[in-house]
Simulated scan of single mutants.
Amino acid sequence: MINKGNRTRQFIIENAISVFSKKGYTAVTMKDICESCQMSRGGVYGHFSSTKEIFIAILDNDLKLNRAIVEESIQKKVPAIRILEAYFKQEIKIIFSEQRGLYFATHEFAFAEVDQRERMNQRLKESIHILMLILTYGQETQAFKKFDKFNKEVVATHIIYFMDSLKTSSSILTMPENEIMKQVGLLKELII
């Protein structure tokens, strides 16, 4: 059950995503977040002490949600191809969303907050692990390729790097959807 404090915290995080998406990481102030949330400084500071703390919460929430969705889908025996399609659909949705700037801000965060580099490395490893769960499930259910040269970790790492590059670049480059779909089609050919 979510209590009022957790709802407020989530409200702040959701508003902060929009602010970071528009302004990047280093340009955002607590004042910006207070204004976006239409909350007093005390209201926001009661949940977070800094923009850095808010950004870390955004990053952590994202991974927890992704992992929970994948694990629940596998537990419910959703076909592996549907899980993979949902994964790519979500990634493409981000590329064309108003929040695509968040991925540029994530890289800015990694450069600005040197003490968070290990967190970013762990985030990468966890993202690869989540995708490997999908690939393993797909192989076990015989929906995906299964042969000696199919190294799940290499394929998962390639996909994560590729999609991260697209999401980061989408905030500054015009990316035609049909070209993105062709690229995603190539990735699917590696797997299915």
Rank of each mutant, 00 (worst) to 15 (best):
Phe88Val: 08
Lys167Asn: 00
Glu118Ile: 14
Asn66Ser: 13
Glu126Pro: 07
Thr106Phe: 08
Ala27Gly: 09
Lys145Asp: 04
Arg7Gly: 14
Val184Phe: 02
Glu71Trp: 10
Val44Tyr: 01
Thr29Cys: 02
Phe96Arg: 13
Gln10Thr: 12
Phe55Ile: 03
Phe109Glu: 00
Arg100Cys: 05
Glu126Gln: 14
Val114Lys: 11
Arg123Gln: 07
Ile192Arg: 07
Pro176Lys: 10
Leu186Pro: 06
Pro79Ile: 04
Glu153Gln: 11
Ser169Asn: 15
Glu118Val: 11
Lys145Tyr: 06
Met120Tyr: 08
Gly24Lys: 00
Val70Lys: 00
Phe48Gln: 02
Ile180Pro: 01
Thr8Phe: 08
Thr141His: 09
Gly42Arg: 06
Ile160Ser: 03
Ile33Ala: 03
Ser169Glu: 12
Asn6Leu: 15
Phe55Tyr: 05
Gln75Met: 13
Gly138Trp: 00
His107Phe: 12
Ala16Arg: 02
Leu131Tyr: 02
Ile191Tyr: 00
Ile130His: 14
Gly101Met: 11
Phe48Asp: 07
Lys125Glu: 12
Glu85Met: 05
Glu179Val: 05
Glu118Thr: 09
Ala156Leu: 09
Ser171Asp: 05
Leu124Gln: 11
Leu166His: 06
Arg117Ala: 07
Glu35Ala: 10
Val155His: 00
Ser97Phe: 04
Lys125Met: 14
Glu72Pro: 11
Ala80His: 04
Glu140Pro: 05
Ser49Glu: 12
Arg123Ser: 10
Phe150Leu: 09
Lys146Val: 13
Ile130Phe: 06
Ile92Asn: 11
Asp62Val: 05
Gln142Met: 15
Ile192Pro: 09
Lys188Pro: 05
Asp60Cys: 12
Ile92Gly: 10
Val28Gln: 00
Ile160Tyr: 06
Ser169Thr: 09
Glu153Ile: 07
Gln122Asp: 15
Phe48Arg: 06
Phe20Leu: 01
Phe162Thr: 13
Asp164Cys: 15
Ser21Phe: 01
Gln90Met: 15
Glu91Pro: 05
Asp32Pro: 04
Lys4Trp: 14
Lys125Cys: 14
Gly46Leu: 02
Asp115Trp: 06
Thr51Met: 02
Lys125Asn: 15
Lys31Thr: 07
Ile94Asp: 02
Gln38Ala: 11
Asp32Tyr: 00
Met39Phe: 14
His47Cys: 07
Tyr45Met: 08
